[in-house]
Amino acid sequence: MSTTLADLIVGEIGIIDDIPIDSVPLKLLEMGCLPGKQVELMQIAPLKDPLYIKVNGSHLAIRKETASLIKVTKIKNLCDILKS
């Protein structure tokens, strides 16, 4: 199973691999959430949903169900962050 944006832990950074265009609205892409871009999970709302992300210079909040459609590759995980 591949990693999605919803699987990231707060502070982790990933690169967006794929966004299924049939199920994700154009608006998300237009706001800068594009394949190949770096995405950071900034914060998770107190009830675990929605997610607060930073992507391509935009700070956005999206729901977990949308985030779980966006495939990412982790480039910096929590261990690295703690070490640095």
Partner: peptide
Amino acid sequence: SFFIIEMPA
């Protein structure tokens, strides 16, 4: 249903 909001500075 869909949800997206900018968190402005």
